[in-house]
Design a protein around this nucleic acid. Structure first.
Length: 233
DNA sequence: AAGCTGACCAACCGCGCCGAT
DNA sequence: TATCGGCGCGGTTGGTCAGCT
């Protein structure tokens, strides 16, 4: 037996929110708060909506100080760094960007930023203020993410791979797609680090002590070996 | 001008977590 | 301690719109 539905699906409205519904929800919450019970809220507010839907609408669009519109280069940088360190933990990333919601950031990453970082551009994205220079390297060399005395080095196969250098300085990403996994090498000016991103592997970048470095090395090694490359330290 | 395609984004869905009982 | 219910999260879907053919 599956989980009981959170609301009577037959009697709740779905789809886009009407301005009147927004007004009702906003007015109710501003007057009474959420009461700590989203399931009961729509009934109290006179809305034919699922509690979850109300919660989402409030958190993503109606609550005060929500920021909409273009992401700044600084926000891009924060998202990239956090994604590199913790992966798709959108709520945590959103917590670092006041006014942005996890849904907003998730959509932004999936539709724009990921492509930007990968150097894949659409016509509408070309000539934007924030751009990466994309160039190719045949003799694969670890792009040092700092000028410090880091001892990490990297060599790989001789296939031509994109290397991304941000015009913002501090970003040096080398991207590889191996068996569907994205490998990112490089990062900002912090210590070298190797981070598992689930479908992504990241080498270099902000210091992160969540992941065991040995595990990441193994992951990198196996991935790179699968791709015909070789990782050296 | 019409149809097609891809990008974008709002909203939904399902699951895991956690507190209350 | 076990069960239940609500919340929050991340993944996915589907509608809309703009650009292209």
């Amino acid at each position: 037996m599956g989980r009981a539905p959170c609301c009577d699906k037959a009697n709740v409205k779905k789809g886009p929110w009407a301005p009147e519904e927004d007004d009702k929800l906003k007015e109710f919450i501003e007057k009474n708060g959420t009461g700590g019970n989203w399931i009961a809220l729509p009934h109290k507010a006179g809305l034919r909506r699922c509690g979850k839907s109300c919660r989402l609408r409030w958190l993503n669009y109606l609550r005060p100080n929500i920021k909409h519109g273009e992401f700044s280069p600084d926000e891009d940088k924060i998202i990239c760094n956090l994604f590199a360190n913790i992966g798709s933990r959108w709520s945590i990333i959103a917590a670092q960007l006041p006014g942005r919601t996890d849904n907003d950031i998730k959509n932004y990453w999936n539709t724009k930023l990921k492509k930007k970082v990968l150097g894949i551009t659409t016509p509408s994205q070309r000539n934007t203020q924030y751009q990466h220079q994309v160039f190719y390297s045949n003799s694969i060399q670890m792009i040092s993410s700092s000028s410090s005395s880091s001892s990490s080095s990297y060599s790989s196969s001789s296939t031509s791979q994109p290397v991304l250098q941000s015009t913002q300085q501090q970003y040096y990403y080398k991207m590889e797609d191996i068996n569907g996994s994205l490998l990112m090498f490089g990062g900002d000016d912090h210590d070298q680090q190797h981070v598992d991103l689930g479908n992504y592997l990241y080498a270099g970048g902000s210091y992160n002590n969540v992941y065991d470095d040995e595990i990441i090395r193994e992951l990198l090694n196996s991935s790179i070996e699968e791709g015909g490359g070789k990782l050296m330290y």
